[in-house]
Design a protein around this nucleic acid. Sequence first.
DNA 1: AATATATGAATGAATG
DNA 2: CATTCATTCATATATT
Lengths: 191, 191
Amino acid sequence: MEQQTQQQIEDGGNNQAAGTNNRWAPTPPQLRILKGLYYDKGFKYPTPEQIQEICLHLKQYGQIEDKNVFFWFQNLKARERQKLKEFRNVPVGGSLDLNFGSTGSTSHDRSTDRSIDLNFGSRVGYGADGSIMEQRGEYHQEIETLPLFPMHGEDILGNMKTTSEGGGGYGGGSHISLELSLNSYRDADMA
Amino acid sequence: MEQQTQQQIEDGGNNQAAGTNNRWAPTPPQLRILKGLYYDKGFKYPTPEQIQEICLHLKQYGQIEDKNVFFWFQNLKARERQKLKEFRNVPVGGSLDLNFGSTGSTSHDRSTDRSIDLNFGSRVGYGADGSIMEQRGEYHQEIETLPLFPMHGEDILGNMKTTSEGGGGYGGGSHISLELSLNSYRDADMA
DNA sequence: AATATATGAATGAATG
DNA sequence: CATTCATTCATATATT
């Protein structure tokens, strides 16, 4: 079938089939910046305003929307957490009947290997530090502060909060001077 | 993670080098057990804990990791759905069924309903209001008579975290200053 | 060998 | 935020 044999999303050329392609794919520069923020800066909890800022900036490197940035951060966080969770050792107990159909031996093979205690064990939870670090609030850098676009976090799209408006939400007109620093990037995927 | 940096396959030459990717392949015993769980037991939604349990057990039959088990279930589910969808797309001639709003019979788990809303206006819960609404305390694993865990059932149920946004809302101190010392060189994107 | 298929792996998007 | 769905990429294996 038409399973393979397709070459889409590329970096070199932003082939936006305008309508045919629905799923966003970060261009290398966008990915580099996003990763730089997340890993190098430890910036993991962008506010809606900051998402807009980031998105606006990333638009230079290819088509992108707020929700893409939002999802990107969400997914990365979720997957890192999930990874930790899966590495965690299972408590005890568990009697999954995995021995069906086997030959005879009706004994629990796994026996007592579940006593292995890794590094986590108890602090894998949230807020227990270690897994989730926060930088919201007043996280300042002490590197070269280079203001990219000292603009005011305005409503770029004007559709962020159509439901619960009224001003009760979040401040709103808060000026955010998003300055990014990507002196060092984490990885250079692709070879 | 960086795997979709594929380049044009029309280069006509050698692409894709380095074959250090050893992808897991289930051994016969492992496959038998996995299939037994999925088909015979109807066990299709393993929790992270159960994944570990299964994985640990399968280790006796060959090298395997949690993520392998995770992906195995994910793929199997996805492909069964995909298969069903293909059959459903048979050229029916002109039988356009626009029966929206009913038929609610058989399957309607929580999918197949993809509504393409590219507007992204009010749905994406940034958690702007903070506070996680509800925390699913029940998995709908319709296991027939499989006593997965006749012991405990906590963990996933207890998810209380009130430090999700920490930053004290987005309205107030969104004075995060990142930095960006990017070189304003735009690669080739955004032609 | 070239093509097709099966399936492991990755990730964007969506839901509750 | 945790979990799940959908689509796609990457390969090993089967088929011709």
